[in-house]
């Protein structure tokens, strides 16, 4: 066993397995976990998954090599992905990617000599209304320019704290992989709910007084008895006191208060098995 894959790692793998009806469903999370521990998917990591799941190494390897997020060489502290799918590319992603390659002195899927940054072009990351987009450890950096992207990687290399546009303060790639594996950190409350483009239509609707039809617009036929004509807003009023009293024990309060007290993950885990 390597110095990095410990008994604790194996215990966490078993914890992942317990979340699913069938053990092999935990393989993708397990590979994310391994990346957080070892920095990439190693041969030993593949053997470990195989042993824990009762699969062959070939079976695990077939999976690990299928998905682009699983890396076969060590990844830098920060993984910088520049979207060069059509829309971002046209809007400036190609220029940004070329500038970063020049600035960092690396090619696609290469890591800087100091081990800080791995640069890669990525496919559409579902933020087209913020094009051109750069991802750092899978956090959104919206509306980038060549200059802002160069500043971003310089800040990362200088060890400065970097805040995603719609996300948290950037953690390391390994820390991010641990969250993807299904072990939450405590950063869900960082960052905004939405960026300006997300709110563009809503803002316009507010300005013009546009709304969805009132809930009582529908006449109660064919609702199969499941729906009454009572609107959500009305219900919300009558049950508000109940909701408020419940919220006293909501974990949102704990985290909402920005205390350092982490949520009891074991107890409240969304991934808990029955």
């Amino acid at each position: 066993m390597s110095a990095q894959i410990t008994e604790g790692t194996l215990a966490e793998m078993r914890e992942l397995i317990a979340r699913y009806p069938e053990p092999q469903s935990a393989l993708l999370p397990m590979l994310h976990l391994l990346q957080s521990v070892e920095g990439y998917v190693t041969a030993e990591g593949i053997e470990t998954c195989a042993a824990v799941l009762g699969l062959t190494a070939a079976e695990v390897s077939a999976v690990a090599t299928f998905y682009t997020m699983y890396k076969r060489r060590p990844v830098g502290t920060y993984y910088v992905g520049v979207c060069t799918n059509t829309l971002c590319a046209v809007m400036g992603g190609d220029v940004i990617f070329d500038r970063l390659k020049d600035h960092l002195g690396v090619g696609n899927d290469e890591t800087t000599d100091d081990g800080v940054i791995t640069l890669e072009h990525v496919e559409c990351n579902a933020a087209c209304d913020y094009a051109p987009v750069v991802m750092v450890n899978w956090e959104f950096f919206d509306n980038q320019t060549p200059e802002s992207a160069v500043q971003l990687v310089d800040d990362l290399r200088a060890g400065q704290t970097v805040q995603a546009t719609r996300g948290a303060r950037v953690c390391t790639w390994r820390e991010a992989e641990r969250v993807l594996a299904g072990f939450p950190d405590d950063r869900a409350d960082e960052g905004p709910a939405a960026g300006p483009a997300t709110l563009a239509g809503l803002k316009l609707a507010r300005e013009r007084g546009w709304k969805a039809p009132a809930p009582d617009a529908g006449r109660a036929t064919g609702d199969g008895g499941a729906a009454t004509k009572v609107g959500a807003a009305e219900q919300a009023d009558t049950t508000r006191a109940e909701s408020e009293s419940k919220l006293d024990e909501s974990p949102a309060d704990v985290v909402g208060g920005k205390t350092d007290e982490p949520i009891d993950v074991d107890k409240h885990s969304g991934e808990g098995s029955s």
Binding site: H32, M69, G81, V122, N125, A126, M135, N137, W138, E139, F140, A164, R166, G167, A168, A176, V179, L180, G182, P184, D185, R187, A188, D189, E190, G191, S250, P251, A252, V255, I263, V265, H268, S269, G270, E271
Partner: peptide, 17 residues
Amino acid sequence: RGEVLHVIRRLQRAVQE
């Protein structure tokens, strides 16, 4: 999809809540 870290955080938290 795995490439949206903060969305995954928010989903994990919502499910916990």
